[in-house]
Design a protein around this nucleic acid. Structure first.
Lengths: 212, 212, 212, 212
DNA sequence: TATGAATGAGCTTTCATTCAT
DNA sequence: CATGAATGAAAGCTCATTCAT
């Protein structure tokens, strides 16, 4: 009875709440990344997907809520991307190397995520721990057994897990930031091996190892 | 009718332009670091040093100009701090190690500088290269001879200078950011040796070096 | 595909239009009284009775219509309450006294009605005469014969009906408002006798009557 | 040296803070009275006096603050008007009568004040006691000695002060409201004598006094 | 030169009303 | 009939910047 032909004109698609939410987040990400938190008018996001401003506010209580959901989504994407690449690898050392590559690849694919991380801190200041670091804290625990195994196996030097994990994490985080913020020409993926080499082998010549 | 005698107590100190400029920058730094760029009212800075808002605008054309001068000042402080610590050291390897310590010490002393870097990017977006990275680009050239000498001497592995410099730079930058953004408890200085150890020696056990 | 059997538990009661209308008005009264006209969201009223917002709009064309119906209902309640109390009394003077008591009792029982009267004026301004006063104008005519009879009987001084009626009406209206707006502790009913005493006998000592 | 001729064009008068405040309040009163609290855009008031919206907000922190200052000003005007009329009268009974006349005259002169009182209650609800009643509470104490003296002199019946004062106050307040809300044609001043007559002498014929 | 009152564009959020389902 | 997602006009408040004094 009801016409099955979609009138392309006025008929609003009537998305499900989940679809709408997802649609909004997809539009919000690039806006916030490119124009910043305060530089983005909620109206802009609404216009991008052709809905009224009220529709945004039906799904996200405040601009802040929307923004944080956008960041959270990015953090989860990063996490999933790394997990997906690493899981199938059987060898722990390969997992470690693979995670470095995956991490850097992610930021090649989604360079705006760096901006989101910056915007979060810029907008919400000293109060809360940024979502990325909250997530990193949680994730670190998962890596401990892997490092332990590598040390036990004699692959890694018996350094404190925390020192290794933090230093590697900071190096990658720093690389992703620096790459984005300097407008780095070559891809991060191309730098991955060089970074891994330093992390794994250090820059000193083996004979000098006693030096430090 | 009104008394014409200037009470010396009330007579404004009449700072020289340079002094005033410096005074303003000193007040602006903490404000911008703590409340962010858009969260800081120019009036707040004026109030902090007890002058009218117009006075700020006499010395800095716009809020943006003032902010960037504040960041520039911080970048120069960092640079000077590192240079001061490194210069007296005669040995190139000591210079390298010393610069890592000095860099991290600086952010222990001036943690707000991280916020300034974040705010700059957040406020001015994708257009310009942040002052810190512009400065880092310029500084890198100064380090090349030192690395070359260390490689020539056989202290360092013959890696590409750029790879080493970027990786080290990113690791330190990442460490400073992560430390501030996670509310790191211990000082950065305490982490310096562990970071240096990874950078210099890597995390792999020497025997495994072929692995990479 | 969707089940066509209506589970009887979930089947909405399907109120008759009149019942629905009444249900809506019952919910609207307290909302408007407590939160004011603009402070009340039509959604709130819908939520209170567990229907969709559209249902409200099916029964009342606009929020304004709904609000005015709510006020009208209150005015009629007041009128009925007084009439019910006064009608059985045979003596005109008792009717007069009884109406004062009934009027004040009503506002003890329904204190929110004062708020409705205030809200009506506040929201719709100078244009229209408020429903309460429109009603009072209409009612006054019914009291004229009673006052005439009391004057004729020699119970009342031969004052102009309008002056008496207005003054009494204003005194009661003022008392109800003042009581609500000051958060009066004792009940209005308790003040009824004192008010009646002043209205009936005045505050002057009889001997001084010439004074005025 | 500075030109003393006022250029009528762009030269902003540069009012003193007090003058500006007063100017704003003078403009706000009629606006709020005519269009209500929520019906008045702060921009409207700004336009009325030819200033920017920011200027309003420089002098009043919020729209609410501005509104309440407007009401407070009206309450004080009323109070002053009554005091001014009553003070010179030597006889206490004349003071009482005079205050009734002055009160009603005030609302003839400033009928919008009724709207302000209504708007205050409508906008700020049940929480706070309206400024008018707060003021009335404070003022009542001043009248007690006068009533006591009149009772002692034998002019007034020995009724409870509170009952007399409240009943009179409510009658006048009610009269002012009813007059405004019914669009009363004749002036309140013309009704003053009739109201006073009821208050002073009651409506009963003297012989019936035992009736109540 | 210093001041701070004035400006007004800009942005977030609300909510009466509509209408496709 | 009932629903509730969608709309979009509207209004409060901020603050960088200007400029008369």
């Amino acid at each position: 009875m009801t016409d099955l032909t979609r009138r392309p004109g006025k008929s609003r698609p009537r998305l499900s709440p989940e679809e709408r939410r997802e649609q909004i987040l997809r539009a919000a990400g690039p806006r916030f990344a490119e124009h910043g938190y305060s530089g983005t008018d909620v109206q802009d996001i609404a216009d991008d997907i052709g809905v009224g401003k009220g529709t945004i506010y039906r799904h996200f209580a405040t601009k802040e809520t929307l923004f944080l959901a956008t960041v959270q989504r990015a953090v989860e994407s990063l996490s999933e991307h790394v997990a997906l690449k690493v899981e199938p690898l059987p060898d722990p050392l390969d997992k470690l190397k693979g995670s470095v590559h995956a991490y850097l690849e992610f930021f090649d694919a989604c360079p705006g995520v760096v901006e989101l991380f910056i915007q979060e801190r810029a907008a919400f200041g000293t109060e809360a721990q940024p979502l990325y670091f909250a997530h990193r804290d949680r994730e670190r625990a998962k890596w401990q057994p892997l490092f332990d195994e590598l040390v036990a196996r004699g692959d890694l030097r018996p350094l404190a897990f925390r020192d290794m994990a933090d230093t590697i994490g900071d190096a990658l985080y720093g690389a992703a930031f620096a790459h984005r913020l300097t407008g780095g020409r070559c891809s991060l993926a191309e730098r991955a091996d060089a970074i891994l080499d330093v992390i794994l082998n250090g820059i000193l010549k083996p004979g000098d190892r006693a030096a430090e």
